[in-house]
Simulated assay, not measured.
Amino acid sequence: MIDSVAERIRTIGHYAPATLQSYLNLTHLTEQTLEKNDSQGFIKELLADHQSLILILRGHIKSFGDEFQDLGTADFITGLMQSHEKMAWFLRSHLKK
């Protein structure tokens, strides 16, 4: 997904971040562990990260289309959101076992 995002950024004429520090400055996710240090805890945290990304992407779709008149990017982040929704669904179903 990271490569796809970088390619989209380049496609619309910008430069993608290329250092770990630039990614850290741009992210809202943290590495803080809030759950139990076991497989179920890790899955819960991964699920929470996917859900957070889904909300952020969902909140930007309309602005890319309406405000920036960039329907291509709106479609692209809709696809990203759908990928995160599917991963979240897989994780939720795993936790129900």
Rank of each mutant, 00 (worst) to 15 (best):
M1E: 05
M1W: 01
D3L: 07
D3S: 11
S4W: 02
S4R: 15
V5A: 09
A6Q: 15
A6H: 14
E7N: 15
E7I: 06
R8M: 15
R8H: 09
R8F: 08
R10D: 13
R10I: 13
R10F: 09
T11C: 14
I12L: 14
G13E: 12
G13N: 11
H14F: 15
P17Y: 11
A18Q: 13
A18K: 15
T19F: 04
L20Y: 09
Q21S: 15
S22C: 08
Y23W: 12
L24H: 12
L24S: 10
L24N: 12
L24W: 09
N25P: 00
N25K: 14
T27A: 04
H28A: 12
H28L: 11
L29W: 04
L29D: 10
L29T: 06
T30V: 03
T30K: 08
E31D: 15
Q32D: 14
T33H: 13
L34Q: 09
K36A: 06
K36S: 05
N37V: 02
D38P: 01
D38F: 01
D38K: 01
Q40T: 13
Q40N: 09
F42C: 07
K44W: 02
K44V: 01
L46D: 15
L47C: 04
A48W: 03
D49L: 00
D49W: 02
H50C: 09
H50F: 05
Q51W: 01
Q51M: 09
S52Y: 11
L53S: 12
L53E: 06
L53V: 13
I54L: 03
L55A: 14
I56T: 13
G59T: 02
H60D: 10
H60G: 06
H60L: 11
I61K: 04
I61L: 03
I61D: 00
K62D: 12
S63G: 05
F64L: 05
F64A: 03
G65D: 13
G65T: 07
G65Q: 10
D66C: 06
F68M: 12
F68C: 07
F68S: 08
F68D: 11
Q69H: 14
Q69V: 10
D70K: 06
T73V: 10
T73Q: 05
D75G: 13
F76G: 02
F76V: 02
T78H: 01
G79T: 03
L80K: 05
L80W: 00
M81E: 08
Q82F: 05
S83E: 08
S83C: 03
S83L: 04
S83A: 09
S83G: 06
H84R: 08
E85M: 11
K86Q: 10
K86V: 00
M87C: 06
K96G: 02
K97N: 13
